Computed example of a mutant assay.
Amino acid sequence: MTKTKVAIIGSGNIGTDLMIKIMRLSKTLEVSALVGIDPRSDGLERAARMGVAVTDNGIDGLVAMPEFADIRIVFDATSAAAHRHHDEVLQAHGKRVVDLTPAAIGPYVVPPVNGESCLDATNVNMVTCGGQATIPIVHAVNRVAKVHYGEIVASIASKSAGPGTRANIDEFTETTSQAICDIGGATRGKAIIVLNPAEPPLMMRDTVYCLCEPADPGAIRRSIEGMVAEVQAYVPGYRLKQAVQIESIGDNQPLLIPEMGQSFTGLKVTVFLEVEGAAHYLPEYAGNLDIMTSAALKTAEKIAERLPA
């Protein structure tokens, strides 16, 4: 079977991990080019050793490469600001784009939630690493009981956050918060990211808080556990760190959500997650990279299936 040729813009942690993941795991995609701006980056040097065409001249260098004509899907693993220009160039050349930045030009995609609904879009957005880890859980609660408020806290090892991630902190919170509503189904969403400098580095941890309508606690737990299994199908290191906690909030002590200007009763659902990376590029603690690149790979393979021959 002929593989669909792809390019990756961004030779940092995310782009390099994605390149190696595609080369090792994908039966339908082939990495034709890795694009960067630093000729001394480890990603470009590694790609060259592995036989992948490289350029350190950014998007202009990619367009000038002889391989560009046959490339059908381009992943962007740079920054939200850079992606806006990249997308303009790529759309002009008729390329399909999988955006791993928080630019959110195209529709949000979280594979187990809406992975089949946006495959014809010319640009799809993978939200953020925290969004890929937590939005499935918010959705799992919401499909049982309406979620009024969803809050997530993503804690990642500082060593796993490269320059692109650090440049996107503001966009991370804004994009993830919006996707908690648009994809997760919450009326209001809030996202927090913590770069943990601990040594040795800690694995990615995520906490999800949902305030929802009263419902059967057992049904909520089963929905969450089923969603965890769906994510594990493409991110094996994704798991519940402990049992789902559900607390009843009664009329005698309603919970005030200042951002919404009102108090609520119902159920407070708390979920603690851990994401262990597959160590394709960085060590196991970098689960934030693994879940992002795994989601992007799964989405691109689905897009490739629908491309005309």
Score class of each variant (00 low, 15 high):
Arg221Lys: 15
Leu289Ser: 10
Ile9Val: 15
Leu307Met: 14
Thr165Glu: 09
Asn125Cys: 15
Ile192Glu: 08
Gln253Tyr: 09
Pro197Ala: 13
Asp206Glu: 11
Ile246Phe: 13
Thr293Ala: 09
Asn288Arg: 00
Leu34Phe: 06
Ala279Cys: 02
Ser32Gln: 04
Gly277Glu: 06
Thr2Glu: 14
Gly266Cys: 14
Leu289Thr: 07
Ala104Cys: 13
Asn196Pro: 04
Val275Arg: 00
Ser11Gln: 01
Pro217His: 08
Asp290Val: 02
Asn196Arg: 03
Glu199His: 10
Asn57Pro: 05
Glu174His: 00
Lys298Phe: 11
Val269Ala: 10
Gly43Val: 05
Asp42Cys: 03
Leu255Thr: 04
Val228Gln: 05
Met19Pro: 00
Gln91His: 12
Lys5Phe: 06
Tyr238His: 11
Asp216Cys: 14
Tyr285Met: 04
Ile59Asp: 04
Gly237Phe: 13
Thr293His: 00
Ile152Gly: 03
Asp60Tyr: 02
Asn13Leu: 12
Ala300Gln: 11
His86Glu: 09
Val124Cys: 03
Ser158Tyr: 05
His83Gln: 04
Val54Gly: 05
Ile291Trp: 06
Gly189Cys: 12
Gln253Met: 12
Asp120Val: 01
Leu25Trp: 02
Ala92Ser: 15
Thr16Tyr: 09
Arg96Ile: 14
Met292Lys: 09
Val235Ser: 06
Thr122Gln: 10
Val127Leu: 09
Ala243Thr: 13
Asp251Leu: 12
Leu256His: 14
Pro197Cys: 04
His148Glu: 08
Asn13Pro: 02
Glu274Tyr: 05
Thr175Arg: 03
Asp76Cys: 01
Glu45Arg: 09
Arg96Phe: 15
Ala157Phe: 01
Leu44Thr: 05
Ala104Asn: 08
Ile73Lys: 01
Ala229Asp: 14
Arg72Cys: 12
Ile152Asn: 02
Arg24Gln: 15
Arg84Thr: 13
Ala278Cys: 08
Glu171Val: 00
Pro258Asn: 13
Thr176Glu: 03
Ala300Phe: 13
Met203Val: 07
Glu259Phe: 00
Leu44His: 08
Asp42Leu: 10
Val63Lys: 00
Ile152Ser: 06
Val113Gln: 08
Ala154Thr: 06
Met126Asn: 05
Thr2Ala: 12
Thr173Asn: 10
Val231Thr: 12
Gly61Met: 07
Ala167Gln: 03
Val110Gly: 11
Lys95Arg: 14
Glu284Val: 09
Gln253Ser: 15
Val63Leu: 15
Arg72Asn: 13
Pro214Glu: 06
Thr270Trp: 08
